[in-house]
Design a protein around this nucleic acid. Structure first.
Ligand SMILES: NC(=O)c1ccc[n+]([C@@H]2O[C@H](COP(=O)([O-])OP(=O)(O)OC[C@H]3O[C@@H](n4cnc5c(N)ncnc54)[C@H](O)[C@@H]3O)[C@@H](O)[C@H]2O)c1
Ligand SMILES: NC(=O)c1ccc[n+]([C@@H]2O[C@H](COP(=O)([O-])OP(=O)(O)OC[C@H]3O[C@@H](n4cnc5c(N)ncnc54)[C@H](O)[C@@H]3O)[C@@H](O)[C@H]2O)c1
Lengths: 256, 256
DNA sequence: AAGCGCTTGTGAAGACACGCACAAATCGCG
DNA sequence: CGCGATTTGTGCGTGTCTTCACAAGCGCTT
């Protein structure tokens, strides 16, 4: 995650937009803009105002304009943005002009759903390989791809130039899988297992955790309830230490 | 999302922590701490230092201490935090002392995986109902729950006091489903469909979009590549506007 | 060709988040 | 009983993100 730049490189201003240093918050919103733009393009719109696009993406219009201004000035005052041009710009910046290959590890419950998901293909990615450790699963064909054994992971990742690894194994196996991905030269990982991964510098990890999302929602539920029901002492029947709820997570302990 | 508090209420310091106003960033990290704490508890640890817990949760220790300090002072200087106590505190704040009921709408590819996921139960939630629009799917039994028709959604949501709705339908159907959830009194929604939902004030929506995550990773890949390969003009063979890549998303246009 | 309405791009201010660094507190030991 | 080792809780400087508000630019109309 080192954000340094070699001070020797004199920042030669090529004709290419040359990958400006986008704020991370902006990067996280660009995909949303892109999706909204594709919708507009399908509906035959050729231009769109920041107000419109912002609404479609669910953000403030000033924020959207500032985000887009970081890519360069591709809007026309008094008119708006050219939809097709903007799509190309954002896709270029996001690196979607070359379709990235994805390896999916862990073809269980969730993995099956992901393997069969058409959203990969339609949004710029290609699943190039599936892996699992279960001998029963290895060899199975899903969507035209044969599940390989995870022992082949590093080798295949290198051979097929896998760009992104998706981990859908139990948490206990996730770190091992991540290590193998890294060994295979993968520098981007999307982790669905509820655990923290340790990876070398230069490798990006993003995590999607269903339970985290639900618990955040739960907090707000709790808050809303305590605001409306406080005067009547509604939910405040606290039960300070109600034993232990749930706990025992089958997904083994932290191995450190 | 109105963050106001009635200025009349004199902030009576009850025995209950009384739901402090947590920064949103803190709320988003609490579930991660909770998971790490459960791991520690399973391994028999009774106390933990901020340093340890921070590492396990993948954050800076000062940040962790500040986060926890917002819940009140439950640590002991020179010793650390009592694991069991902290678990109870965080679960209380997150509103997990009462197990929240979840309704899952859209039992397709992804929905099946979610319905069969044990992470709901082990992390404080209970799936109370499944819904789908496809007559073939309605009636199917998954994990002891019968799939109901989505027309029953509002009614059942009210009857069963559903706290959280999870949307796993195609994007084109998501807004309609959200409307029905809201009509049934649901005030928290987790949306897996790639679209923006419009909901009344007081209803919280969180979105999980696989493609967004991948595209963010793609950006960083692109960036890493352009940094290392720039001097040799590696990937910089730009092809400024390479026609249109992919596009045509089968998931219908924005219905506004 | 000038005016007018519309929309972009951005300066500035405020809000929020982060992380260092240290004082205050606690424990264990001699 | 006092001291040193340890760890929490937090004040503060710094940087990032958001939002407002408006000047500058564009095209259309007259
Ligand atoms: N199912 C869901 O809806 C869901 C939702 C959110 C998160 N998750 C998380 O995703 C992960 C997978 O969930 P699931 O429900 O698919 O579990 P699962 O048990 O159905 O599937 C896990 C798969 O990983 C394989 N596996 C185990 N060890 C492996 C290894 N070392 N290398 C390669 N493959 C290995 C197993 O053979 C199995 O096929 C879990 O960490 C879970 O917590 C699941
Ligand atoms: N499959 C994945 O791995 C994956 C990953 C990320 C996001 N998603 C998103 O999740 C959603 C579901 O994906 P999927 O692969 O499960 O699709 P799917 O087509 O397999 O399942 C969709 C289900 O929703 C049902 N449905 C359709 N309209 C409905 C309505 N009005 N009310 C109730 N149910 C309705 C369908 O009958 C079907 O069973 C999509 O929006 C997809 O983009 C899927």
């Amino acid at each position: 995650m080192s954000q340094h730049r070699p001070p020797g490189a004199p920042e030669r201003s090529v004709a290419v937009p040359a990958l400006p240093d986008l704020p991370e918050a902006t990067v996280a919103r660009l995909p949303e803009y892109l999706r909204a733009l594709h919708n507009l393009a399908e509906n035959g719109h050729e231009t769109v105002s920041s107000e419109w696009l912002a609404t479609a993406a669910g953000v403030n219009s000033a924020k959207l304009r500032k985000d887009l201004s970081h890519l360069g000035s591709y809007g026309t005052r008094g008119v708006g943005y050219d939809v097709a041009l903007l799509i190309d710009q954002i896709e270029y910046v996001l690196g979607l002009t070359q379709r990235r290959t994805v390896a999916l590890v862990g073809v269980g419950n969730l993995g099956h759903a992901l393997a069969g998901y058409d959203g990969f293909a339609t949004r710029g990615f290609r699943i190039a390989a599936l892996f699992d450790a279960d001998p029963v699963r290895v060899g199975e064909e899903i969507n035209g791809l044969v599940v390989r054994h995870v022992d082949e992971l590093s080798r295949v990742a290198t051979e097929e130039s896998i760009a992104i690894g998706v981990i859908a194994t139990p948490a206990a196996a996730a770190q091992r899988v991540a290590d193998r991905l890294v060994a295979g030269g993968v520098t981007s990982i999307l982790n669905f297992a509820p655990c923290v991964l340790t990876v070398p510098d230069g490798v990006d990890v993003r995590k999607v955790d269903l339970a985290v999302e639900l618990q955040i929602l739960s907090f707000h539920e709790h808050r809303k309830a305590s605001l409306t029901a406080l005067p009547a002492a509604g939910e405040a029947t606290l039960t300070p230490l109600p034993g232990s709820l749930a706990a025992t997570d089958p997904q083994e302990a932290i191995g450190t």
